[in-house]
Design a protein around this nucleic acid. Structure first.
Lengths: 228, 228
DNA sequence: CGAGAGTATTAGGTGGTCCTAAATCGGAGC
DNA sequence: GCTCCGATTTAGGACCACCTAATACTCTCG
């Protein structure tokens, strides 16, 4: 009930902080204030100040000069935001014709405005999906999440065929480029070559070959077999 | 362009003030600060302060001690919020199974978070409706709105049959009661009796008779013929 | 082990939105 | 035409969330 009542009263900013800290360390390893500041595009002193307030409210623990960890309550609130965000993305793509490069920005605002009831109605309309349009797992309403083990495309050996599971990218122009190569969750690709310098990887997908650089190679998270 | 750039940067509070002022006087007659304060559940001094800022930004005109009127720019921004609100209500009812008593609160938050693009996608999914679930007209994207002439049920003469066009009510429990009587936009009712004291009206709807009091008689807005 | 680089925090300030308490204004009625 | 009540505004604060500039800490390297 403490958690429920706190969830009710979190401001938009607080929700953003919690989500950011969760994203910086899903496993609970401490996150530094400067990492948080960078992710949220804020100055480090702003983060220090907010972090102090949040730790007073019991949402996280802050050891000065050492970093920040979510408490159980903070983690719950963060996962609630992640669930909202990913379900909203899925809903916009499925029912309102959004392309995956446009959903992030919209969801970023909506996640603070929707009620729990609306989120659950969207989940129901979608048939309670496990993943969002980028392949990211959607936490369940009770706060459990299955992160499935993935390997970055850049680490897949030459000759192997794998399936793309997740596309770790939010920037619209990057996503449009990725889509233009025919790459999205569920697509199978074969690694046909790797250059010894710069770790450039050549892949075959849908009968075409493309060269993938270092950054994109880490954005594309793959696994060998098909069930999710 | 001035309008567009201003629209971008309005805060949630400002949007609420503009919508409230519009609702208090769609025709542009001045609204008093205390009316605004009452509608937004704020103290009168808060309203005076905000009104001052908004008039400096050109969104309204304030004559001290005399009231407040929206400028053309303020009216445009207000109508944009009304359009969002009513389209969101319509969408929630049509596609997400909301009952009309639940949509207001949800739309009240979402209207500040959705993008113009999302609003237009919702409008398209709905087939560009002219009215929301309460029968209120939806302003078009360019800011025009057709208020259709309605008569409160309490003013309909005995013996007449009319169609309910609008239900001017937001409180969920009131709306649930109204729905339980079978009353909603599009329904035809016949006025079978009127008591000389308290203006109590007896109506027949769907084969049943109900007595309607003064307040509800004004909530139900009717007209004689059917097109809208 | 001490200095310096780099990270983090404190100090002090701004803008937005709200509040209560204390003036002030405007109009109705004598 | 003056008084007085209610509506309105001014005065003075509080809180949130952000900022920049200045200070403090940590850790590494010589």
């Amino acid at each position: 009930m403490s958690a429920a009542s706190v969830s009710e009263s979190l401001t938009r900013s607080v929700e953003d902080y919690l989500k950011a800290i969760y994203q910086l360390s899903p496993e609970g390893r401490p996150a530094s204030t400067s990492e948080i500041a960078h992710l949220l595009a804020l100055s480090p002193p702003s983060v220090t100040g907010m972090v102090k307030r949040l730790s007073e409210h019991g949402l996280l623990e802050h050891v000065p000069y050492r970093g920040v960890q979510l408490t159980e309550e903070g983690r719950r609130a963060a996962l609630r935001m992640v669930r909202r965000h990913r379900l909203i993305e899925a809903y916009l793509v499925e029912f309102l014709g959004y392309s995956w490069d446009a959903v992030h920005e919209e969801a970023e605002r909506l996640e603070h405005a929707v009620s729990d009831a609306l989120v659950e109605r969207m989940a129901m309309s979608l048939g309670h999906p496990n993943v969002d349009p980028h392949g990211d797992p959607i936490p369940s309403a009770d706060g459990s999440i299955h992160e499935l083990a993935c390997t970055p495309l850049s680490d897949i050996p030459v000759g192997e065929t794998v399936e793309i599971h997740r596309v770790h990218e939010n920037q619209p122009d990057h996503l449009r480029y990725i889509a233009s190569l025919g790459l999205r969750p569920g697509v199978r690709v074969r690694v046909v070559d790797r250059q010894p310098i710069d770790n450039l990887v050549t892949i075959e997908v849908g009968g075409e070959q493309h060269v993938i650089g270092r950054e994109l190679g880490h954005v594309l998270q793959c696994a060998w077999s098909g069930d999710r």
